[in-house]
Structure formats: structure tokens, C-alpha cells
């Protein structure tokens, strides 16, 4: 179910502004890849280009290739809707649909694209997805309550359940814990460790301890100055990045000398 992502010479533009320059990287399946770097350096933009979500912003475009499963996401005739079904995304702030119950939230993606699902299958999927997101025991007695009645951490795990319910191959996470308290953060981090058994996970984080704790490989993005494009400075095993980084900028950043 999980797939390798090959990014080749990716440039990302907002209209004429080059936001991220020349990223080439290979993201291994069944692993957690963390992207770290100072604010505004293009980590999120890069992450969103992996499922074509950055296109939501008018004028955004890319040059280069993102290849998943032998297919270029930016190739001719590729439907972004289908891309996003394969590459799911969890956002910075928990965003369950407020007009839906917990159960409806989990099934929200499954019912798209005219797919129908039987009652028993739906119940089963809700349970496996919520169990997969470590949320089942907390919500099993109130599946019909609104998703917004949960705590922030529970909402974020509900969003993860919603994402994995459509059975994607890759799960992108854009600072999934930045709006959560330490306990909820821990719950989500534990969950990430479990999810990597089945999914390729790419996570953007501002929290370097988090990157060190839960990722296998880490990429460091940096920006030379305002108005300059962000670049992937260094990409390596997390151990190597945090212990013996080869770039000065990486070392400065992780040791807290800037950023």
C-alpha cells in the first residue's frame, strides 16, 4: 500500500515568484520523513506539491517531476482529484467537518466520487480507521456526536482516521501537532510510528525533538534571504542529520544558533 516518492528537479512557483528551487529527493516507502527548517522556507509548499494541494492557491505551478509508483503527478492528463486520493493530507489545525458527526467525518472521503458503501462495511471501516488512529476507545460510544465536540488532540486523530479511511499510499502531515498540547502530541507521535508500518509518511515540523523522535530520515530546508527561494539543503538519515550534519547551516539550525 505504501509507495516510493521520487522528486526530480522540482521548482515551485506562485505566479512569477519562485518559492522552492530545485528539489531532488527520494522518499522511501514505509518510513517517516521529516522536513525541518525555519518559517517561510518552503517546507509546507513543498509538502503540498506532493499531492497537488498547493494548486488551490491561484497562480501556483511547478516545474519538474514528482513520481509516485512510476507515474509523474504533474504528467499530462493526471487528475489532481485522483492524486489526492492516493496521497492524503493532515493539516496544521485539526479540521473535522463541523456539520458532520464523528462517524460521518471518517466516511467523508470514502463517500466521494459517487462511491457507495454498505452499512456493515461502513461500520467496519469506521472502526478500523478509528482504531488505526488510536481514537476508537475514546469515541466508540458517541459516534453520532459532532466531530467538533472532541478535544483538539482527538480532533486531529479524527482527521488522521478520515485520511486513512480512503486507504491512501502516502500520508502528508503539515505540522500536525503544532496546535496540540504535549499529551496529545505524544498520542499523535505514537500513532505516526504505527502508521509507518503501512504508509509512507512525510511530516513537516517545527519541533526538532519531534523530528528526531519519530522520523527515519530528515530533510533540512533553508532560505538564503527574504525574496529568495527555499532550498533543500541537506537530506539524510535522521541520526546523521542530528549528529553529524555535513552542512554548516544544518548544524547551526539544529543546534539552535538561528531560526
Amino acid at each position: 500500500m505504501s509507495k516510493r516518492i521520487d522528486v526530480k528537479n522540482l521548482d515551485i512557483y506562485y505566479s512569477d515568484f519562485l518559492a522552492v528551487k530545485d528539489v531532488s529527493v527520494t522518499i522511501e516507502p514505509r518510513s517517516v520523513t521529516a522536513l525541518i527548517g525555519p518559517s517561510g522556507c518552503g517546507k509546507s509548499t513543498f509538502l503540498r506539491s506532493l499531492n497537488r494541494m498547493h494548486e488551490v492557491i491561484p497562480g501556483a505551478r511547478v516545474e519538474g517531476e514528482v513520481i509516485i509508483d512510476g507515474e509523474n503527478l504533474y504528467g499530462k492528463g493526471i487528475d489532481p482529484v485522483m492524486v489526492r486520493r492516493k496521497v492524503g493530507m493532515v493539516f496544521q489545525k485539526p479540521n473535522p467537518f463541523p456539520t458532520m458527526s464523528i462517524k460521518e467525518n471518517v466516511l467523508a472521503g470514502v463517500k466521494l466520487n459517487n462511491k457507495r458503501i454498505g452499512r456493515t462495511d461502513a461500520d467496519e471501516l469506521v472502526e478500523t480507521s478509528l482504531r488505526g488512529a488510536n481514537l476508537w476507545n475514546e469515541v466508540k460510544d458517541r459516534l453520532d456526536k459532532p466531530g467538533s465536540s472532541l478535544s483538539g488532540g482527538q480532533q486531529q486523530r479524527l482527521c488522521i482516521a478520515r485520511t486513512i479511511a480512503v486507504k491512501p499510499e502516502v500520508v502528508l502531515m503539515d505540522e500536525p501537532c503544532s496546535a496540540l498540547d504535549p499529551i496529545s502530541t505524544l498520542a499523535v507521535e505514537d500513532l505516526i510510528a504505527e502508521l509507518k508500518e503501512n504508509y509512507t509518511i512525510v511530516i513537516v515540523t517545527h519541533n526538532m525533538q519531534q523530528a528526531a523522535r519519530c522520523s527515519d530520515r530528515t530533510g533540512f530546508f533553508n532560505i538564503e534571504g527574504t525574496g529568495k527561494p527555499g532550498q533543500l539543503v541537506e537530506f539524510n538519515d535522521t541520526q546523521t542529520i542530528f549528529n553529524t550534519p555535513s552542512e554548516k547551516a544544518t548544524e547551526d539550525y539544529i543546534s539552535g544558533r538561528f531560526g
Partner: peptide
């Protein structure tokens, strides 16, 4: 309609119309 909800829907693989039906219309009801 909060951008976050629209994006949540799109990220699940919703088409534009499905995104509208899932987030914009319930929100605006």
C-alpha cells in the same frame, strides 16, 4: 467558508462540486 474545511475536503480527493457540497453548502446553510 473556512479555507481549512475546503482544503480538508479537497485533500480527501473531492472534486470541486463535492467540496462545495461537503463544506460550503453545509457551512452556509
Amino acid at each position: 467558508t473556512p479555507r481549512l474545511h475546503e482544503e480538508a475536503s479537497l485533500a480527501l480527493g473531492a472534486t470541486r462540486w463535492e467540496m462545495i457540497r461537503q463544506t460550503v453548502i453545509p457551512f452556509g446553510k
